[in-house]
Simulated assay, not measured.
Amino acid sequence: MTTYEDSIRTRLAEWERGLLKQPGLLERTSKSIQTKINEKIPAKIHAALTTAVKGIFSTVLFTLDFVPKSLPQTGLTLQQRDEKAVEVVNTYKKIAAAEGAGTGAGGFALGLVDFPALIAIKMKCLFELAHLYGYSTRDYRERLFLLHVFQLAFSGRDHKVRVYRIVRNWDEVALQYPEGEHALQTVDWEKLQQEYRDAIDFRKMLQLVPGIGAIVGAWANYGLLEELGQTAINCFRLRLLHGG
């Protein structure tokens, strides 16, 4: 084991403790406030978001549209992969911020358009990271893994813990899925959509507020890609260091 890999193992252990610890007062209070805000959002907005989320994920998982043209990277050390991954995430953070600023300035209609567009940006980032760390997204099970990474980044505490245990033991879990596209039928779409909407609603709903939409849109999207990128990098580190 290299010194770099040893330091990454230490950082992963700290990350795991943060994921599994009980929520503090601030987190519980924030969740309570967010729940009250969500209850005041019209049902038609939630319905529109649900439709948008399900539509884009179906495209991501059931087609090859998001699969990078480049082959999975081989022959790189973990440190080299991590350095390249940071560059990839930084690029997508800028793309997401620009997209959020543009739609945020357009009011309610374009604000709703931002939801599926942002998911597409996030998933393109994940697909590219997968190939960078040596995993082919032409494999249905790798796409399922990315879906779990996505949920780990954007879910409530309880669901996040369950998903983390799946991610940590992915090589064993993946063997339980049926082969081919039938594996994708195991996804609990309603749970995924609800967790995602609840995780980002507060920040993204501020984007619909007139006068501040562009600023909030850029800020929210940049931060969301930062969260996703760090989560994905740690998940791929786990797999490589465990020999998966």
Rank of each mutant, 00 (worst) to 15 (best):
T2V: 03
L20V: 11
T29F: 07
S30G: 15
S32C: 08
Q34L: 12
I37Y: 12
H46Q: 11
A47D: 06
K54W: 06
G55L: 12
I56S: 15
V60G: 14
F62R: 15
V67G: 02
V67P: 06
S70A: 11
L71Q: 14
Q73T: 15
E87C: 05
V88N: 03
V88C: 05
K93E: 02
K94F: 12
A96S: 08
G100Y: 08
A101V: 01
A109M: 10
L110H: 03
L112F: 07
D114Y: 02
L118R: 12
I119M: 12
K122W: 12
L126N: 05
A130G: 06
L132I: 10
Y140D: 10
F145N: 05
F145P: 03
L146I: 05
H148V: 09
G156N: 06
H159F: 13
V167D: 01
V173K: 06
V173S: 00
A174R: 14
Y177C: 07
E179N: 12
W189M: 14
Q193W: 03
Q193N: 14
D198M: 09
D198E: 13
F202E: 02
R203S: 13
K204A: 05
L206F: 15
Q207G: 13
G211I: 04
N221D: 03
N221S: 07
E226T: 10
G229H: 06
A232D: 02
I233P: 01
N234V: 05
L238A: 06
L240P: 01
G244Q: 11
